[in-house]
Design a protein around this nucleic acid. Sequence first.
DNA 1: GAGTTGTGATACCTTTTGGTATCTCTTTTC
DNA 2: GAAAAGAGATACCAAAAGGTATCACAACTC
Lengths: 107, 107
Amino acid sequence: MTQDLQQHAFRALADPTRRQILALLAQREMTIAEVAGHFDMTRAAVKKHLSILHDGALIETRAEGRTRVNALRPDGLKSVANWLGAFDIFWDERLAALKSAIEKDIQ
Amino acid sequence: MTQDLQQHAFRALADPTRRQILALLAQREMTIAEVAGHFDMTRAAVKKHLSILHDGALIETRAEGRTRVNALRPDGLKSVANWLGAFDIFWDERLAALKSAIEKDIQ
DNA sequence: GAGTTGTGATACCTTTTGGTATCTCTTTTC
DNA sequence: GAAAAGAGATACCAAAAGGTATCACAACTC
């Protein structure tokens, strides 16, 4: 369930174009055509990327007349961040160990 | 450069098997055979996953006799976490807005 | 030193992915 | 209401991804 959503989110983030799209949408909401204007590919290709981002719950789409506005979603990246959070303690530990090992080496 | 490494890290995290491997290695270091024992696939397939994790700087490998021990790397996930961190302000803002909107709706 | 065990490397197959081209539908605009 | 503009849907193609099978190599064990 949520597991599946998380998988979709991770998959969505795997493509550099999609991460760029997220960065764009972080600045302001955009229609498909506006997003496509920033890339050297067809609108259809951009639409596919947006669909994948939508599947990962990373963006939401709102109809506005004949255009559709895409915006970031506040909860999508959270599930990814939460997964990474499980490793926080580990990283802090290891980085601290590394730091002290280096300091020991300097002396 | 670092951009490329980040791309490899995101790509490495896109596969659920690889995320499981990271979770396993967070508990303790393991040889390839040990990791493969946790999955229903050939050792060769697991080796491929480990190579991709290695490309993303998420694990490191140390030769020990005729075995090779795989361990988590303290800096790999950091680059992913840092990228996500750029959105933190945005998410907090949006989530707060969502929360107040809901509260307003209840009243 | 011969057999066994843990890995690495390669070739190959199937499915998924990223992309284009094209057609249709809906909503403006005149 | 007819033409134009924004977007969705589908078919199709090339490349990448995930997997197996198989061979070669290094290092223990006896």
